[in-house]
């Protein structure tokens, strides 16, 4: 770890002004990615702004058909929330399978989506449910929020404050984990969402993406069989020692089938 200034944020506005004025200042939420990055000297920030004191950003509320989760809400809180389990059980299930218990009790939804790791689970949940990301400046639809690998629509001084999930008719998430890291090699979130069928894939490509052919097939026939013969091209998918692009492409179909079956 290199030396840096540590600043405990007193408000979202204060945090935004610090990172807005200094491109080398960084926010830390749960720190599940950023602290290891610092420890390995892979980042040299000028200032680290700690968001953990901002209690207003943590919490889960349900209003009508919308579940809103504060940016600083831990994965474990989502996984264990009776409200989430009642409204969108697939989202509680997704959160309950992120990392391990230590990660789930530190990591936050805001930190996860702002980091946009290509193998993270939440991006599939947000895109699969057609969620809306609220920031200190605006609201951004999930489809427009995730841009590319580790890249989001967030401006330099923009901070995620909460995520709103419209309740789906039904939904489920299935992931095939990397055996070592347990991140998603391929995770597929399927939903009969508020605006139609959504199939969102994480882990397989550089960034979460939707599979239009599967969405169309499921719109007319919500069954595992409907997607069984729909294959996704391996072109542009990720490759590493654990999974080739072809294997990931294959897993998209397998996980999509299983997610549809799980959703019922």
């Amino acid at each position: 770890m290199y030396n840096f200034e540590y600043k405990k944020a007193g408000s979202v506005a204060e945090a935004a002004s610090i990172i807005g004025a200094d491109a080398d200042a960084k926010l830390v939420a749960g720190g599940m990615t950023y602290i290891p990055t610092l420890k390995q000297r892979l980042a040299a920030p000028t200032t680290v702004v700690d968001m953990n004191g901002l209690g207003d950003l943590a919490g889960i509320s349900v209003a009508g058909d919308t579940v809103t989760i504060g940016a600083m809400t831990r994965h474990a809180a989502v996984a264990c929330s009776a409200d989430v389990a009642a409204a969108i059980p697939a989202l509680a299930d997704l959160a309950g399978h992120i990392g391990d218990p230590q990660v789930r009790n530190r990591g936050t939804i805001g930190g996860s989506i702002a980091n946009n790791d290509p193998a993270a689970d939440y991006p599939a949940g947000l895109v699969g449910l057609g969620a809306t990301v609220k920031t200190n400046r605006r609201e951004v639809g999930a489809d427009d929020f995730f841009i590319d690998m580790f890249e989001t629509a967030l401006e330099q001084d923009e901070i995620v404050t909460s995520v709103s999930f419209p309740k789906p008719v039904k939904a489920a998430y299935m992931k095939f984990p990397n055996p070592a890291s347990r991140y998603a090699i391929t995770g597929v979130f399927v939903a009969q969402a508020h605006d139609g069928v959504r199939v969102a894939v994480t882990g397989a490509g550089p960034c979460v993406f939707r599979v239009a052919a599967m969405e169309a097939a499921l719109s007319s026939n919500w069954s595992a069989d409907a997607v069984a013969d729909i294959s996704v091209s391996a072109d542009g998918l990720n490759e590493d020692i654990h999974a080739s692009a072809e294997y990931r492409a294959h897993l998209i179909t397998v996980m999509a089938k299983r997610a549809v079956a799980k959703a019922g």
Binding site: N178, A180, S181, I241
Partner: peptide, 23 residues
Amino acid sequence: VLESAVYDGDGQLVSGSYMDYTM
């Protein structure tokens, strides 16, 4: 079924952390 120290052709240890070395 899990563990393997994988080197690439340049002699870099690809599975050099627990992100890639499966304990």
